[in-house]
Simulated scan of single mutants.
Amino acid sequence: MGEFEDTRRHAIVEDPPSVEAFASAVSWGAILAGGVAAAAFSLILLMLGSGLGLAAISPWAPAGESAARFGVAAIVWICVTQIFASGLGGYLAGRLRKRWVAVHGDETYFRDTAHGFLSWASATLVTAIFVTSAASGLFHVTAQVASVSATGGAMGTLKDRGNASAALDAWPMGYLVDGLFRQSDSAAANSNATPDVTAADKKEVVRIFLNSLASGAPLSSSDARYAARLVSQRTGSSLDAAQTRVIATYSQLQQRFADLKAAAKDAADKARKAGIHVSLWLFVSLLMGAFAASLTATIGGRQRDF
C-alpha cells in the first residue's frame, strides 16, 4: 500500500511537467481562427461605416464643414472598428486554444495575452496586404489627377510646355491668346481690312510665350515687337496698341501661372498635413486593437479553463 502511494505521488508531481515539456505553448489554429474572424468583422464594420458616412454627408453643406465632420467621424469609426474586431479575434483565440495542464496562473495569463496579440497581428497583416494592393492604384491615379488639376491641365507638365497645340487648348493659355487676337468693333465691322486669324498665328504667339515662361523671364523686346506685329495685322490695331496688349496678356499669363503654382503648393501642404494626421490616428487605432485583442484573449482563456 505504501509503495502504491509513492508511485501515485510520483505520477502527480513528475508527470505534468513532462507532459508540458512536449506540448506546444502556441495554439496556431486558435490564433488563425481569431485573426480571420477579426479581419472579416473589421471588413463588415468598415462597410457599415462607409454607408453611414455617405448617408450623413450632405451635398448642400459647406465643403470645409462637411470634410471636417467626415474626418472626425472616420477617425472615431476606425478606432471603434479596431477595438471591436480585434476584441472579437482575441476572445476567440483565447477561448479556442488548447487546455494547458499544470501551467502556472501567471504563465497562463501571459500565453493568453500572447495569443490575443498574435491573432491581432495576423488579422492586421492580412488586412494590410489587401488594403495596400487595392489602395495603391487609387492613390496613384488620385495624385496624378490632383497634380494635373492644380497646375492647369496640359500646361502643368514640362512635356506639354513645348507643345503649342496642347498649350493652346489648355486653360488659361488658350483663353488669353484668343483674347489677344480679338478684333475691336470697328475692325470687326470692316472685316475685309484685316486677314483672318489662323491657328498658325496663335501657335506662334503661344510658342513665344512658352519660351519666356519656361525660364520665368519677362517677354523680350524682340519677341514683344514680333508678336505685336502679328496682332496688329490680324486685329487692325496700331503697333503700339498691339504691343501694349501683348505685354499685358503675357503679364496676366504669368500671374495665372503664379496663382496655379501657389494653389498646387497649398494643396500639397494640405495633403501632407492630412497624411500626418491619418498616420498618427492609424497608429493609435492599431494600439487600441492590440490592447483589446490581448485583453479579451485573457477573458476567453479564463472562460476556457473554468
Rank of each mutant, 00 (worst) to 15 (best):
M1C: 04
D6V: 03
R8I: 12
H10D: 08
H10R: 15
A11M: 09
P16M: 03
P17T: 01
E20W: 02
S24C: 10
A25T: 09
V26F: 08
A33W: 03
A37Q: 01
A39Q: 05
A40Y: 00
I44R: 12
S50R: 11
L52E: 02
G53Q: 02
G53C: 06
I57F: 12
A63S: 14
E65M: 09
E65Q: 04
A67G: 07
V72A: 15
A73D: 07
A74G: 15
I75C: 11
C79F: 13
V80P: 01
Q82V: 07
Q82Y: 03
S86K: 05
L88S: 04
Y91L: 04
L92A: 01
G94Q: 05
K98I: 12
R99G: 14
W100T: 10
V101C: 13
V101L: 15
A102D: 14
A102Q: 14
H104G: 06
D106C: 06
F110H: 06
G116Q: 09
S119D: 03
A121R: 05
V126N: 09
F130N: 14
F130S: 09
S133D: 12
A134E: 12
S136Y: 13
T142H: 15
V145T: 08
V145Y: 09
V145E: 11
S147Q: 15
S149Q: 09
A150L: 10
A150R: 08
G152M: 04
M155Q: 05
K159E: 13
D160S: 15
R161Q: 09
G162I: 10
A164C: 11
D169I: 14
W171Y: 14
W171D: 14
L176V: 06
L176G: 06
V177R: 03
F181L: 07
R182W: 01
D185Q: 11
A193L: 08
D196E: 13
V197H: 02
V197A: 00
T198E: 01
A199V: 07
D201Y: 00
E204M: 05
I208C: 01
L210N: 01
N211H: 15
A214H: 03
S215Y: 08
G216N: 07
S220G: 06
S221F: 09
A224K: 11
Y226I: 06
V231G: 01
R234F: 00
S237I: 04
A242P: 03
Q243D: 00
Y250T: 08
Q255W: 12
A258K: 10
A264E: 02
K265D: 12
A267T: 11
A271F: 07
R272I: 14
K273C: 01
A274P: 04
S279M: 10
L280Q: 04
F283A: 08
V284S: 05
A290E: 11
A293W: 00
T296F: 00
A297E: 00
T298P: 06
G301L: 02
G301D: 01
Q303Y: 13
Q303H: 04
D305R: 06
F306G: 15
